[in-house]
């Protein structure tokens, strides 16, 4: 092998993977080790594979992924905090032939935007919501989120989340699954190649549902890490996520083809 130069190996016939065409060349603003980049890539791969590059409108949230529109190479709108489902509702209603998605974090979707989330789901808007749950407010510096686990330390729960005074972590995904307006509800993760492949299948199913005009909203939660906010090394944060987040936020499909599992 040592006799073969790299240039001899990099040939079209040896190509097994390439940069996602629908990701821009802009350097990701996410912390090294964060799951956002992988989630972005999977979504843009799906949009490309479904041939929807010119017929997709995305809505970015407020939070770490506020700049998602810098990285996703499709038409994008940046919504006010929590309002992405309302923004997406109007885009889809006025352009029913287009594929419309929102990309939101836990603070955006499950705290300030709870009403917009619940009602877009309840109306059965034919959009895709991708929900990144890392149990913390990343962008503002690690404050408690609606999804922060009991006893979990954050900058606004420095002694750990006391559920007596700070409430319980909100399983909003199970909540929206109860609404007749949701057609597909699933919880995934992207911390390993195997998990990312599964998550991609779920994202593809969600977008395919919209493309096929299935009645209702497709909702994909991705349980993710926040190594900076959790104050951990990236690998350690993924281990912590598997040990602590996954038991509370159990992975897998919750509702498929409009039926609760």
């Amino acid at each position: 092998m040592s006799d073969i130069a790299i240039v001899d190996i990099i040939k079209p016939e040896n190509l097994v993977y390439e940069k996602t065409k629908l990701m821009t060349d802009k350097t990701l603003s996410y912390c090294p080790g964060c799951g956002h980049g992988t989630a972005h890539r999977l979504m843009m791969e799906v949009v490309g594979e479904l041939g929807q590059e010119n017929d997709t409108v995305g809505v970015a949230p407020v939070g770490c992924s506020v700049l998602a529109y810098e990285f996703m190479n499709v038409d994008m709108q940046e919504a006010a905090h929590g309002r992405a489902p309302a923004v997406a509702t109007a885009i889809k209603r006025l352009w029913p032939g287009k594929m419309v998605f929102t990309y939101q974090g836990d603070g955006d979707l499950a705290a300030i935007g709870t009403a917009e989330t619940i009602h877009a789901c309840n109306r059965g808007e034919q959009i895709v919501i991708v929900f990144i749950n890392n149990g913390i407010y990343g962008m503002t510096g690690g404050q408690m989120a609606p999804t922060t686990l009991p006893q979990m330390k954050t900058s606004t729960s420095p002694y750990g989340r006391d559920i007596q005074t700070m409430g319980n972590p909100l399983k909003i995904t199970e909540l929206v699954a109860q609404l007749p307006g949701t057609y597909y509800v699933t919880r995934q993760s992207v911390q390993s190649p195997a998990a990312a492949r599964k998550a991609k299948r779920a994202i593809k199913k969600a977008f395919q549902n919209q493309l096929d005009g299935k009645p209702g909203l497709s909702f994909v939660e991705i349980v993710s890490n926040c190594n900076s906010g959790w104050k951990m090394e990236p690998v350690q944060s993924n281990e912590w996520m598997e040990e602590n987040m996954f038991p509370y936020y159990q992975l897998g499909d919750i509702k498929v083809d409009g039926k609760l599992l």
Partner: peptide, 21 residues
């Protein structure tokens, strides 16, 4: 299209989305 939103907050953000297209 006429839609009754869940709040004035949602209405104005629907305008953001629709007007933005």
């Amino acid at each position: 299209v006429v839609l009754q939103a869940e709040s004035e907050v949602a209405s104005i953000n629907m305008l953001y989305g629709g007007g933005g297209t």
